[in-house]
Simulated scan of single mutants.
Amino acid sequence: MFAPDRLRLAGRYADLLATEGVVRGLIGPREGARLWERHLLNCAVLGELVPDGAEVCDVGSGAGLPGLVLAIVRPDVHVTLVEPLLRRTTFLQEVVDELDLTGVEVIRARAEALHGDREFDLVTSRAVAPLGRLLSWSMPLVAPTGAMVAMKGASAADEVAAVEKELAQLGCAPPEVLTVGAGVADSPTTAIRVVWAEPARVRLARAQPPSKKSTSRRPRG
């Protein structure tokens, strides 16, 4: 899973999670003993779903799970970590600098702030929000031929069944509930993968400049 030259980086990241991550409230104090199985390996197996050389966006990255792990296990990809909280982005940037992860960008913002400006081959998330909200945050960032991959637990199928309306409104294809890491990790990872139903229509819609009426926004209270 981790190549020999990347295992050292993963170990150092685990050390930072167990120390600074706990001190800053990014990881629970009881998580230290199970960081590898519950967090690092759980995220690393997601690399099976990442295309070669992909542009990856990790929404609500938190302590860097799964984004930083993917950057470590898959040095061929470029990862953008999107996180709105300063204490978290500070930690993320410190890890990126210490591990010299040149293919990682840290952005302090909500995912919605990137809508219309950036698109990615893969948009990931882990324990961020229910699927309905994730779709509205993530799918506008997904390239026409890309995918959203959300790490979920045992309730994944129930979450999919509950968002039929949102999927139709956004123009998504029926989601796939996938299991990755079987035979590699003791507890395989469950993920929901969502792609566009008609990629060509997504490209066309994004190519059209918005009208003046559509760009006007009411101020938020």
Rank of each mutant, 00 (worst) to 15 (best):
R88P: 00
V104S: 08
V22I: 15
R38V: 11
A157K: 11
A109D: 04
Q93L: 14
L26I: 06
L178E: 04
R12D: 04
E166K: 13
G60W: 02
P219M: 15
L178P: 00
K165I: 11
L65V: 13
H115E: 07
L178K: 04
W196D: 10
V195W: 10
G62P: 09
L35Y: 05
A143I: 06
E20L: 12
H39K: 09
V77L: 02
R118L: 11
D158C: 09
P51F: 00
V96T: 04
L86S: 14
L86F: 14
V128W: 12
A3Y: 01
R217H: 13
E31Q: 14
R218P: 07
G153I: 08
M139H: 06
L68H: 05
Q169S: 15
P199I: 02
R34D: 14
A3Q: 09
N42R: 10
V22N: 12
L46H: 03
T102N: 12
D100L: 13
L131R: 10
R206Q: 08
V56N: 01
E20M: 12
V177I: 11
R87Q: 08
L131I: 09
A10N: 00
L141N: 02
R133T: 15
A14N: 04
M1G: 08
L134C: 14
A200N: 08
P175D: 07
E37S: 13
P51W: 02
A18K: 15
V96Q: 04
N42V: 07
L16H: 02
S136N: 15
E55F: 07
